[in-house]
C-alpha cells in the first residue's frame, strides 16, 4: 500500500485539461482525459487506454496486459467523494476482492465470464480478459426496433410473444441467458446486479456455433444480430452464496431490469428464462418457487388476486 502511494508521487496522474475546458465549454473532451486515470494506466509502458464506459460504480478502460497484442479490460473503482472515506475504502476493497474471487470461481467451473489477469484492491482496480461483441441490451433493443419497423404499424407496440417464426432468434438468445444464469447459480455464485447491460454477446468463431439448439441462426429479423455466446460481466455486486433466497432475488433483479429496458418482450422473457434456467440448474424449481415469494414482496403491491 505504501508503495502504491509512493508511485503516485512519482507518476502523478495527468492534470485535467483545464484550459481547454474554459475556452470551449461545449466541446467534448477526449474521453480518456475526461477523468483522472488510475496510476496503473499512467506508466509509459502500457498501451494508451481507452475509456469504454463510466458505470455507476467504476470506469472500464480498454488496455493491454503484458503483451501489446493481448487486449484487457481494466476496471477501476475511483474513490467516491460523496461517501465517507472509511466507508468508501471498505466498500471498494471488499468489492474488488469479491469480484476477483467470484470470477475465478466461475472461470474454474466453466461459467462464461472474463478471466482475471491482475488485481490491486488497495488501488481499486482489476484487470480482466477483454470480451468482444455488443452488450445483450443493445442487441435486443436494436432487434426489437428493427422488428417494429418491419411491422410498420404506428400505434401501440404489441407484445412479442415468441410464437412467430421470426422471433426464433430472440427466444434462442433468452434461452442462452437463462442457461448462463443457471450455470452461474449452479457453482454457488449470485451476481447481484443482473441486467442485460451486464451480459455481452461474444461473437462465435467461424463455424463454431453451438449445435445444441441454443443457436438459431435461421431467417429472422436483423440477421445475426443476436448471435453469440452470452458472457456475464460486472460481478461488482456478486457474492458466493447457495441460498435460494439470494438466487431468487438475482432472478428478480434481472426480471425487473428486463421489464424496464425491454418492456415489449417482458412476458416472453419470464417464460423462456424459467425453462432454460431449469435445464441447466438442478435446484431451479426451489428457486423459482422462492421467486414467486420475492415478487409478492415488493412494497405496496396490490393484494388482489
Amino acid at each position: 500500500m505504501a508503495k502504491t502511494a509512493q508511485w503516485r508521487k512519482i507518476h502523478p496522474p495527468p492534470p485535467p485539461p483545464a484550459q481547454q475546458q474554459s475556452e470551449k465549454p461545449h466541446e467534448p473532451k477526449p474521453e480518456t482525459e475526461q477523468f483522472p486515470l488510475p496510476t496503473i494506466l499512467t506508466y509509459p509502458s502500457s498501451t494508451p487506454p481507452t475509456l469504454i464506459t463510466q458505470g455507476a460504480e467504476a470506469r472500464l478502460y480498454k488496455t493491454t496486459y503484458l503483451l501489446p497484442s493481448l487486449p484487457a479490460a481494466l476496471k477501476y473503482r475511483p474513490p467516491k467523494t460523496w461517501r465517507h472515506p472509511v466507508l468508501d475504502a471498505r466498500l471498494t476493497r471488499h468489492r474488488i476482492l469479491a469480484e476477483a474471487r467470484v470470477l475465478t470461481r466461475c472461470r474454474r467451473a466453466g461459467v462464461p465470464v472474463p478471466a482475471v489477469y491482475a488485481v490491486d484492491e488497495g488501488a481499486g482496480w482489476l484487470a480482466m480478459e477483454w470480451i468482444g461483441g455488443p452488450p445483450a441490451r443493445a442487441a435486443i433493443n436494436e432487434w426489437l426496433k428493427r422488428r417494429k419497423e418491419e411491422e410498420g404499424g404506428e400505434g401501440r407496440a404489441v407484445p412479442v410473444t415468441g410464437k412467430e417464426e421470426r422471433d426464433k432468434q430472440l427466444v434462442a438468445l433468452m434461452r442462452r441467458i437463462g442457461s448462463a444464469v443457471g450455470r452461474m447459480h449452479g457453482v454457488g455464485v449470485v451476481h447481484g446486479d443482473l441486467t442485460t447491460s451486464n451480459m455481452m454477446l461474444r461473437p462465435w468463431e467461424k463455424g463454431r456455433e453451438p449445435a445444441n439448439g441454443y443457436a438459431a441462426t435461421g431467417e429472422g429479423v436483423g440477421d445475426g444480430l443476436l448471435d453469440g455466446d452470452i458472457v456475464i460481466i460486472d460481478f461488482g455486486l456478486a457474492s458466493q452464496s447457495t441460498s435460494d433466497e439470494d438466487r431468487a432475488v438475482d432472478l428478480y433483479v434481472l426480471e425487473r431490469a428486463f421489464a424496464s429496458t425491454h418492456s415489449r418482450a417482458e412476458a416472453l422473457f419470464t417464460a423462456t428464462l424459467e425453462s432454460s434456467y431449469k435445464e441447466t440448474f438442478k435446484q431451479a424449481p426451489v428457486v423459482l418457487k422462492k421467486l414467486e415469494e420475492v415478487r409478492m414482496r415488493g412494497r405496496k403491491r396490490s393484494m388482489i388476486g
Binding site: 463510466q54 455507476a56 460504480e57 461517501r83 465517507h84 446486479d193 447491460s197 431490469a257
Partner: peptide, 18 residues
C-alpha cells in the same frame, strides 16, 4: 446517516447509469 445516504446515492447513481 452516512451509511444509509451512501446506499441511497449509490442506487440512484446506478439507476442514472442504467
Amino acid at each position: 446517516q452516512e451509511t444509509i445516504f451512501a446506499m441511497l446515492v449509490e442506487i440512484t447513481e446506478r439507476a442514472m447509469a442504467h
